[in-house]
């Protein structure tokens, strides 16, 4: 049987992979055959894993991005997969109290970082196609809050996650010319430090999800592996919603 979903021999980078969805993705990439996975995060990993190299950097600044990229450039000639997962909600406040700081924190890490990190990795990504004749894959992890609104007043988070989807479209049209395919995933409620409610109250959270449960590692890994492998080669600039049906309900 043809294995359309193999990631054998790939070199991958995941941002924000020390915990939550990023950690699930990191483990999945190793499981599906990636030779080496780099995790760039401002936090220490909850648990260090073999086959994963941990780089501690703050990616919300261009200096931090450049330092992280330099460390990977020293070890690799190319990258096959880049998962821009690092994100922050940066606080929810009423409309009149919402501050510039909240806005900038969210917009920087959720939208600026994926753009400039991909830009800094651009040459290494183009080599995936040049060396191995396969598309490099950039996967931007957005959120269902980039599609529909929840009750939270986190203006910067919602707007930046929506912005990331449009950024994904534009990057995809430009970068495909050089053999790089860019797509986005909108996860729903997955237990994590960022979604503490889903982590601490899975049963209460599940009441609002049509499928009746919160997301699992298999759910997010399935989506990432689909897009990252040959299987997803004809998906371009797309938004893949993995939310158990939440965004389809009123």
């Amino acid at each position: 049987m043809k294995n359309l979903f193999s990631l054998e021999g790939r070199v991958a980078v995941v941002t924000g992979g020390s915990s939550g969805i990023g950690e699930m993705i990191t483990r999945g990439l190793v499981k599906f055959g990636c030779t080496r996975v780099y995790n760039i995060s401002v936090h220490d990993p909850l648990q260090e894993r073999t086959s994963v190299t941990y780089i501690k950097e703050d990616l919300s600044t261009l200096d931090g991005i450049d330092r992280a990229v330099s460390q990977i450039e020293e070890k690799e000639t190319h990258i096959d997969i880049l998962v821009n997962n690092a994100g922050r909600s940066a606080g929810a406040k009423s409309f009149t109290e919402y501050a510039e700081e909240n806005w900038e924190t969210a917009v920087d890490i959720n939208m600026k970082t994926p753009l400039f990190l991909t830009q800094r990795f651009y040459k290494m990504l183009t080599k995936s196609y040049k060396q191995n004749n396969r598309l490099a894959k950039v996967i931007n992890i957005s959120s269902i809050n980039g599609l529909t609104l929840d009750q939270d007043h986190s203006y910067g988070y919602h707007a930046s996650k929506a912005g990331l989807l449009h950024l994904t479209r534009q990057m995809s049209i430009e970068l495909i010319k050089d053999g790089i395919s860019v797509n986005a995933i909108c996860p729903g409620a997955f237990p994590s430090n960022m979604n503490q409610y889903a982590r601490d109250y899975p049963y209460e959270t599940a009441k609002y999800i049509p499928v009746g449960r919160t997301g699992t590692p298999e759910d997010i890994v399935g989506a990432v592996v689909y897009l990252a492998s040959q299987a997803g080669d004809y998906v371009l600039g797309s938004t893949l919603i993995v939310d158990g049906g939440v965004s389809n309900t009123r």
Binding site: F5, V211, G222, A223, Y226, Q230, G232, D233, L240, N248
Partner: peptide, 21 residues
Amino acid sequence: DDIVAAITYLASRAGDYCVGT
């Protein structure tokens, strides 16, 4: 391969959380 992979993703366990996707 493109269409078979998309259907396989959705039809298998991997796509269980893709409700209305």
